[in-house]
């Protein structure tokens, strides 16, 4: 049983399922979700809709995920993005650009850059739920009604000084144990990003957010919607998917 970051940190921390329990501690609430991330692998087809001011750009991509460590993404459209592939293994991200026929290895502060023009950063993409639990202290702030549901409000504070998101606030739905909103703050208290879960579907044995919206507050009038069109859990992923060879395959 793996705790899976799926594809995005932000999705992983909103993921939660299991029984409702009264008077849980903050750690327990957070742990509930991680404990119940019960798939080993997943395949999904995703639409990414970036809205900047009046401009709307739609990108289609597919994603394979295995455990917390590995994921592989391929962009299908638009034309200039087609064939761009990303391979994430651990904390390292490799991107293949078909126009240059080269692979770029991203790590460190470069991961804070916007990913493919969206409101998500590469870092949002590579950070796992596991790391999140290791690197933050969790505190239960209280309860609040959000989107017509009673929610726990959790605050995560970084144990490390120079974390991009020093504070994270999560609203966790008491009924389904799904994080419905996440706010990311800088150490100064400046709000950096807001993630909202807009649609949740129930699958065989789990709830899963299928539409999330990220707003990078440092960009004006900008948001990125991520819509999961199709998702399959615990499938067999072809051998050699998470390799550099696959990345450079034409």
């Amino acid at each position: 049983m793996n705790k899976v970051a799926l594809f995005l940190l932000v999705i992983s921390i909103t993921l939660t399922c299991g029984k409702a329990g009264e008077d849980l501690t903050a750690e327990e609430i957070l742990a509930m979700r991680d404990k119940n991330m019960v798939f080993d692998t997943a395949y999904s087809e995703i639409d990414m809709i970036i809205t900047i001011g009046k401009r709307v750009v739609e990108k289609k991509l597919t994603s394979y995920t295995e455990g917390t460590e590995k994921s592989f993404i391929e962009f299908l459209s638009p034309a200039r993005d087609r064939g761009t592939k990303m391979l994430k293994t651990g904390k390292v991200l490799k991107i293949y650009f078909p126009s240059a026929e080269r692979v770029m290895r991203l790590s460190g502060h470069m991961l804070r850059q916007s990913m493919m023009g969206s409101d998500f950063s590469y870092e949002d993409l590579t950070e796992t739920a596991e790391e999140l639990r290791k690197e933050y202290n969790v505190k239960l702030l209280g309860e609040e009604v959000f989107a017509a549901a009673q929610c726990y409000v959790l605050e995560l504070e970084s144990k490390i000084e120079n974390k991009t998101y020093f504070f994270i606030k999560i609203w966790v739905d008491k009924e389904r144990y799904i994080g419905s909103k996440v706010e990311f703050y800088a150490k100064s208290g400046k709000l950096l990003k807001v993630l909202a879960v807009e649609d949740i579907k129930s699958f065989k044995n789990r709830y899963y957010p299928t539409k999330v919206t990220m707003e990078d507050k440092l960009r004006k009038n900008s948001k990125t919607e991520m819509i999961i069109k199709r998702i399959e859990f615990d499938i067999l992923i072809p051998q050699g998917t998470f390799t550099e060879r696959n990345l450079m395959r034409k």
């Binding site: 970036i50 900047i52 401009r55 750009v57 638009p78 034309a79 200039r80 993005d81 761009t84 991107i95 650009f97 126009s99 240059a100 080269r102 770029m104 916007s114 493919m116 023009g117 969206s118």
Partner: peptide, 16 residues
């Protein structure tokens, strides 16, 4: 050197 940028349509493009 590999140069990567986001183009006017928010696509990511790279050249060497």
């Amino acid at each position: 050197l590999l140069a990567v940028t986001s183009d006017i349509n928010y696509s990511t493009y790279a050249l060497t």
